[in-house]
């Protein structure tokens, strides 16, 4: 509520009002230095708000941190773990601090480490781990107590593509367990893939908070359409483009970029995009690639962020 954070004359966060309820994944988007991490740090009492209050389940985090964070798991930036500890020990520490029973602790450590695919490294010292491996353990630590609310600050930072995909899978699985996930990121495809709602912030100010569909519809500039670039093995004739491709369900416009490349704007969900791909493949017109060139969220993001510059 009315969260502000100032460092001298620099305002990192300005009157942020954001109320998130229910079980869903909210993507917290914004450019570098927009105030995403600052917000999450205030919500974990790592820093204090200059004005306003951060409330979790109605409890002021700064006044009653222990109570407020009881049902929260958080991963802020990329924490370091004591290098002499093993993941089992580091996670045991978190489990002990959170009051897990001996049986639950053993079981949850096993599950959490399996989720982040680090079983083989459970008893190796963290000091020897790569940045990505440490980040996996940090993700496991945030999820260890199966918290109702999960706050993740750019959780895929430092992870290789496989690791990023695995973390996205973990977040998706949390959605199915009825958790509230608040995740900052500047990876738009990541957010588009897993988040239900978007909160966009720039220069410390909240620009928009709405469902992903509403944000893209309102701000993408072309009614929430997606761009797809298709490449063909051989030259494609104009008639095929205008009569066959343009009439496929969801296709809004078609544009022949050159003799073998066509750009399509289509409106619809990821499932609609899958159907479009399947329809194009069924046409057997020599399609060799089907690549989204930009997303509606990206257009929305660029439009909104541009407007505040």
């Amino acid at each position: 509520m009315n969260l502000s954070k100032r460092y001298g004359s620099f305002t990192a966060l300005s009157n942020l009002n954001l109320k998130i309820e229910g079980s869903k994944c909210v993507g917290f988007l914004g450019p570098n230095g927009a105030g995403k991490t600052t917000t999450l740090k205030i919500f974990t009492d790592m820093i204090r708000a200059s004005e306003g209050k951060a409330l979790i389940n109605g409890i002021d985090v700064h006044e009653s941190k222990k109570k407020a964070l009881e049902s929260c798991g958080a991963l802020i930036e990329s924490p370091e773990i004591y290098p002499s500890l093993t993941p089992r020990e580091a996670l045991s520490m978190v489990a002990d601090l959170r009051g897990l029973s001996r049986e639950d602790k053993k079981e949850r450590i096993k599950e959490a480490v399996a989720e982040v695919k680090m079983e083989e490294w459970l008893d190796k010292k963290v000091g020897k781990f790569s940045k990505g491996m440490k980040q996996r353990i940090n993700v496991a630590a945030a999820l260890l107590s199966e918290p109702e609310i999960v706050m993740l600050d750019e959780p895929t930072t430092g992870l290789d593509p496989r690791g990023q995909s695995e973390v996205r899978d973990i977040v998706r699985s949390l959605k199915h367990k009825n958790r509230l996930i608040f995740m900052s990121s500047h990876l738009l495809n990541e957010v588009q893939e897993i988040c239900d709602e978007i909160a966009m912030i720039d220069h410390g100010k909240l620009i928009v908070y709405d469902t992903l569909a509403n944000v893209t519809r309102r701000f993408s500039g072309d009614g929430g359409t997606n761009d797809v670039q298709i490449e063909f093995l051989k030259d494609i004739d104009d008639q095929t483009v205008s009569r066959s491709i343009a009439t496929l369900p969801g296709v809004v416009t078609t544009e022949k970029v050159n003799s073998r490349n066509v750009r399509i704007k289509f409106s619809g969900t990821s499932e609609d995009q899958a159907r479009l791909l399947s329809d194009l493949a069924a046409m057997k017109i020599g399609m060799i690639s089907f690549r989204p060139s930009s997303s509606a969220l990206e257009d929305s993001y660029l439009n909104l962020i541009k407007d505040t510059l």
Binding site: T44, D45, M46, K65, K66, K67, A68, L69, E70, C72, A74, L75, I76, E77, S78, P79, E80, I81, Y82, A90, V94, L97, R98, N138, A141, A142
Partner: peptide, 14 residues
Amino acid sequence: NKTGYFLVANPLRR
């Protein structure tokens, strides 16, 4: 060393 980030984000008093 940023080891504090691992501990401080948990529900415990400083």
